[in-house]
């Protein structure tokens, strides 16, 4: 049974497997973290991997996620996984005061990004029907 992995970028699928062991290629595609000789890397940042967290080109992504202090949850069957960003990383990102970017659809389905509005003063306001 294929596994579904939810990230802030949406739902993605990975082939069936044990818990959250993924190929290095799937891990990179889904999370942006790349397996390199020095560890798992994203951009400039590399995190050395403790023994047992990677073998034969596969990564224990659940263990890695815990290792970097990022939150993760899964359904009872282990087929749907939800991966989040660590609180400390979110806090640091907010402290730059750069407005976090996002891309969302309007009612017609057209995608809009906050960053498209650079150059204007923008009131970003939330609401809900409930």
């Amino acid at each position: 049974m294929t596994r579904t992995i939810l990230t802030e970028a949406g739902a993605q699928t990975a082939p069936s497997g044990d818990a959250l062991w993924l190929s290095a290629a799937d891990a990179l595609r889904i999370t942006g973290w790349e397996l390199k000789p020095e560890g798992m890397c994203r951009g400039e940042l590399c995190v050395p991997l403790p023994a047992g967290m990677a073998k034969d080109g596969q990564i224990d992504l659940a263990a890695f996620w815990g290792h970097i202090g990022a939150p993760l949850a899964h359904d009872a069957g282990g087929t749907v996984w939800s991966l989040g960003t660590a609180a400390s990383e979110r806090r640091q990102s907010l402290e730059t005061l750069e407005a976090p970017d996002f891309t969302l659809p309007d009612l017609a389905g057209a995608a809009h990004s906050l960053s498209d509005l650079r150059g204007k003063k923008t009131l970003l306001v939330t609401w809900a029907s409930w």
Partner: peptide, 12 residues
């Protein structure tokens, strides 16, 4: 030079 972005937090 002003814009409003209204985001519906609407899981339905």
């Amino acid at each position: 030079n002003f814009m409003v972005v209204a985001v519906a937090e609407e899981s339905r």
